[in-house]
Measured scan of single mutants.
Amino acid sequence: MATADDFKLIRDIHSTGGRRQVFGSREQKPFEDLVDLGWLKRSSVDSRATHYQITERGTSAAL
């Protein structure tokens, strides 16, 4: 179930172009929650960072 923080984060991601790069596993937790909701997808993972991209469902949630 989505929380107020989830909606705040997806709106922030949407307003800044729909993509986010995250460093460190602790910082990934809120983004992984949005992946579980179907609002974000992991577009790539490298040794230092994970890249996320907003989905259509995420765009709808952000509006």
Rank of each mutant, 00 (worst) to 15 (best):
His51Ala: 10
Asp46Cys: 10
Leu63Lys: 08
Ala2Tyr: 06
Lys29Met: 07
Thr3Gln: 06
Thr55Ala: 02
Ala4His: 10
Ser47Tyr: 08
Gln21Glu: 15
Lys41Ser: 12
Val35Glu: 03
Leu34Phe: 02
Phe31Pro: 01
Leu63Tyr: 05
Ala61Asp: 02
Leu9Glu: 02
Arg19Trp: 14
Leu40Cys: 03
Ser44Met: 13
Glu56Phe: 07
Arg48Gly: 14
Asp6Ala: 09
Ile10Ser: 00
Ser25Met: 08
Pro30Asp: 05
Val35Phe: 03
Phe31Cys: 04
Ser15Gln: 13
Glu56Ile: 08
Ile54Gly: 01
Gln53Phe: 09
Tyr52Ser: 01
Ile13Leu: 05
Arg26Met: 15
His51Thr: 15
Leu9Asn: 04
Leu9Asp: 01
Phe7Asp: 02
Val22Phe: 04
Asp12Val: 08
Val35Ala: 04
Gly18Trp: 02
Pro30Gln: 09
Leu63Trp: 05
Glu56Thr: 09
Ser43Ala: 13
Gly18Lys: 02
Ala2Gln: 04
Val22Ser: 04
Phe31Lys: 00
Val35Asp: 01
Pro30Asn: 06
Gly24Cys: 11
Ser25Leu: 07
Phe7Val: 07
Gly17Cys: 08
Ser47Val: 10
Tyr52Gln: 01
Asp46Gly: 09
Ala62Cys: 06
Glu56His: 08
Gln21Cys: 15
Phe7Met: 07
Glu32Thr: 06
Ala61Ile: 08
His14Lys: 05
Ser60Asp: 12
Ala62Glu: 02
Leu34Met: 03
Thr59Asn: 07
Lys29Arg: 11
Lys8Pro: 02
Gly18Tyr: 02
Arg48Leu: 14
Glu56Asn: 08
Asp46Pro: 05
Glu32Gln: 09
Ser47His: 10
Phe7Glu: 04
Leu40Tyr: 00
Gln53Thr: 13
Glu56Lys: 09
Asp33Asn: 14
Arg26Val: 15
Ala2Pro: 15
Leu63Phe: 06
Thr50Gln: 06
Phe7Cys: 08
Val22Pro: 03
Leu34Asn: 01
Ala2Ile: 07
Asp33Ile: 15
Arg11Ser: 07
Leu37Phe: 05
Thr59His: 08
Glu27Ser: 11
Arg48Lys: 13
Lys41Glu: 14
Lys29Gln: 11
Ala4Val: 11
Ala62Asp: 02
Glu27Ala: 13
Asp36Pro: 02
Glu27Tyr: 10
Lys8Asp: 09
Thr16Leu: 07
Ser43Ile: 15
Ala2Leu: 04
Phe31Glu: 02
Gly18Pro: 02
Lys29Val: 07
Leu63Ile: 11
Gly58Glu: 01
Met1Arg: 12
Ile10Thr: 01
Leu40Thr: 02
Arg48Ile: 13
Pro30Glu: 06
Lys8Phe: 09
Ala61Trp: 04
Ser43Met: 14
Tyr52Pro: 01
Phe31Ser: 01
His51Trp: 15
Leu37Lys: 05
Ala61Tyr: 04
Val35Cys: 10
Asp36Gly: 11
Leu9Ile: 04
Phe23His: 13
Thr3Gly: 06
Ala49Pro: 06
Leu34His: 00
Phe23Glu: 14
Ser25His: 11
Asp36Glu: 13
Arg48His: 14
Gln53Ala: 09
Leu40Arg: 00
Lys8Arg: 13
Ile10Gly: 00
Ser15Ile: 11
Ser15Arg: 14
Arg57Tyr: 10
His14Thr: 03
Arg42Tyr: 06
Asp6Val: 05
Arg19Thr: 13
Thr59Tyr: 07
Ser25Thr: 13
Thr16Gly: 10
Leu40Ile: 05
Ile54Ser: 02
Gly24Arg: 09
Asp5Pro: 06
Arg11Asp: 03
Val45His: 09
Glu56Val: 09
Tyr52Asn: 01
Ser44Asn: 10
Asp46Ile: 06
Phe23Gly: 10
Thr50His: 07
Ile54Met: 05
Ser47Met: 10
Arg26Cys: 15
Gln53Pro: 01
Gln28Pro: 04
Met1Gln: 13
Gln21Ile: 15
Tyr52Ile: 01
Arg48Asp: 14
Ala49Glu: 12
Val35Asn: 02
Ala61His: 04
Phe7Lys: 04
His51Lys: 08
Asp6Ile: 05
Thr55Ser: 04
Val22Gln: 03
Arg26Glu: 15
Trp39Glu: 01
Thr55Trp: 00
Thr3Ile: 04
Arg20Asp: 03
Glu32Cys: 06
Asp36Ser: 13
Gln21Leu: 15
Phe31Gln: 01
Trp39Asn: 00
Trp39Pro: 00
Gly38His: 04
Leu63Gln: 08
Ala49Lys: 08
Arg26Trp: 14
Asp36Leu: 14
Lys41Tyr: 13
Asp36Asn: 13
Phe31Gly: 00
Gln28Phe: 06
Asp46Met: 06
Ser25Pro: 12
Arg11Ile: 12
Leu63Asp: 05
Ser25Ile: 11
Asp5Asn: 10
His51Tyr: 13
Ile13Asn: 00
Arg48Thr: 14
Asp5Phe: 08
Ser44Thr: 11
Asp12Ala: 11
Ile10Val: 06
Arg19Val: 14
Gln28Lys: 11
Arg48Trp: 12
Trp39Ser: 00
Thr50Val: 14
Ser44Cys: 15
Phe23Ile: 15
Arg11Glu: 06
Glu27Lys: 10
Gln21Val: 15
Gln53Ile: 13
Lys29Asp: 05
Thr16Asn: 11
Gly24His: 14
Arg26Thr: 15
Arg19Ile: 13
Val22Met: 04
Lys29Ile: 08
Met1Asp: 10
Leu34Glu: 00
Ala4Phe: 10
Arg57Thr: 14
Asp46Lys: 07
Thr59Phe: 06
Asp33Val: 15
Phe23Thr: 14
Ala2Val: 06
Leu37Val: 03
Thr16Glu: 10
Ser25Gln: 12
Thr16Trp: 06
Leu34Val: 02
Gln53Lys: 07
Thr3His: 07
Gly58Thr: 00
Gln53His: 09
Val22Leu: 04
Arg11Tyr: 11
Lys41Cys: 14
Ser15Asp: 13
Arg19Pro: 03
Arg57Ile: 13
Ala62Gln: 02
Arg11Met: 11
Arg42Ile: 15
Ile13His: 01
Arg48Asn: 14
Asp5Val: 06
Thr16Ile: 06
Lys8Glu: 10
Arg57Val: 11
Gly17Lys: 05
Lys41Asn: 09
Asp5Ser: 09
Val22His: 04
Thr55Tyr: 01
Leu9His: 03
Gly18Ser: 03
Val22Arg: 03
Thr3Lys: 08
Leu37Glu: 02
Leu37Pro: 00
Leu40Asp: 00
Arg19Tyr: 14
Arg26Gln: 15
Ile54Asp: 01
Gly24Tyr: 07
Trp39Tyr: 03
Trp39Leu: 02
Val35Trp: 03
His51Val: 15
Ala2His: 05
Asp33Thr: 14
Met1Gly: 12
Gly18Asn: 03
Thr50Ser: 08
Asp12Arg: 08
Asp46His: 07
Glu27Val: 06
Leu63Cys: 10
Asp33Arg: 15
Gly17Leu: 04
Glu56Leu: 09
His14Val: 07
Leu63Met: 11
